[in-house]
């Protein structure tokens, strides 16, 4: 067993004049949930598909569980579980039949019954795949990815298009997969999803990884800190001299203080209020998110 689940080295993919993936490298440790976060068109799916052996890289390679994908793409596919973004099923096969069919595509397969129970598809066992709801389809999709009991799984935007309830439900499924010690690589453009699920996150934009770390480290490093929003009567002068404050701006009648030490800053604001130097009606403290990281790194929001 290779020490690393995945080693990605300088992957490049070009489509004519467009470079979809422009030299992507990263490693994924065993048992890790690794997220690739980025807007649509950032090259997330192309990167994933090159690693899965579905697309041939123009340059670079990936070693999956010790197997070089350029040398043996089918060998890679035998070892991994793949969930494809937006792929459909055979509409008039039941959930059980779909699992039987895809099980036959692998050397050894988990029984359909076990997968159906795991993904809570019991009620839909005899239902045609074409009649499933969005959340059920995604669970069937993950069941298909689990059919060969893989140690490494690739999930491409597993929760896109789902309602919040179905999304949370799927997060539980992924957390469960991780508890079993499997490695998961997933793409998403939901920063909340990346923060909740992922041990480490690579932020991708225009075919490149612009930052890669744990969600906390990314936030610490790439955002101005916590934002304290106050509505003040009286001037905002001198607020930038308060402890911890790095930056002050006005937005929609609110004064936004970026602070590296929010507790000290709030204490100082309270003191000013008690002294009568200013008076504030409302106070909100907002932790920075990966969204802010993305904004900081690219100057754009994730979903625009």
């Amino acid at each position: 067993m290779a020490a690393l689940a995945l080693q990605v080295r300088s992957l490049v993919k070009r489509y004519g004049a467009l470079t979809a993936v422009a030299g992507v490298s990263f490693d994924v440790a065993r048992g890790e949930i690794f997220g690739i976060l980025g807007p649509n068109g950032a090259g997330k799916t192309t990167t994933l598909e090159m690693i899965e052996g579905l697309r041939r890289p123009d340059e670079g390679t990936a070693v999956v569980d010790g197997v070089d994908v350029r040398a043996d793409p089918r060998g890679v596919r035998a070892r991994i579980g793949v969930q494809l973004q937006e792929a459909a099923f055979f509409e008039r096969l039941t959930v059980e039949e779909t699992l039987t069919l895809f099980g036959a595509f692998h050397r050894r397969a988990t029984s359909p019954q076990a997968l159906i129970e795991r993904l809570q598809l019991g009620e839909k066992r005899k239902a045609w795949a074409g009649t499933l709801s969005g959340g059920q389809r995604q669970r069937l999709s993950i069941a298909l990815a689990l059919v060969n009991d893989p140690q490494i799984m690739f999930l491409d935007e597993p929760t896109t298009g789902l309602d919040p309830q179905a999304r949370r439900n799927l997060w539980d499924v992924i957390a469960e997969i991780r508890r079993e010690g499997r490695t998961v690589v997933l793409t998403t453009h939901y920063m909340e999803e990346a923060e909740r699920l992922c041990d480490r996150v690579a932020i991708m934009d225009h075919g490149r990884i612009v930052a890669l770390d744990t969600p906390r480290a990314l936030i610490r490093e790439h955002t101005p800190g916590t934002t304290i929003a106050v509505s003040i009567s009286g001037g905002a002068e001198g607020l930038d001299a308060l402890p911890g404050v790095r930056h002050v701006e006005l937005e929609d009648g609110e004064t936004l203080l970026s602070s590296t030490d929010p507790i000290q800053t709030v204490h100082a604001l309270m003191d000013l209020d008690r002294q009568g130097a200013l008076h504030f009606h409302r106070l909100r403290v907002e932790e920075a998110t990966l969204e802010d990281v993305f904004l900081h790194l690219t100057g754009r929001r994730l979903r625009e």
């Binding site: 579905l54 596919r77 792929a87 692998h106 298909l144």
Partner: peptide, 8 residues
């Protein structure tokens, strides 16, 4: 594509 994503 989903079929192709298996080792079949």
């Amino acid at each position: 594509k989903r079929v192709l994503a298996t080792p079949v």
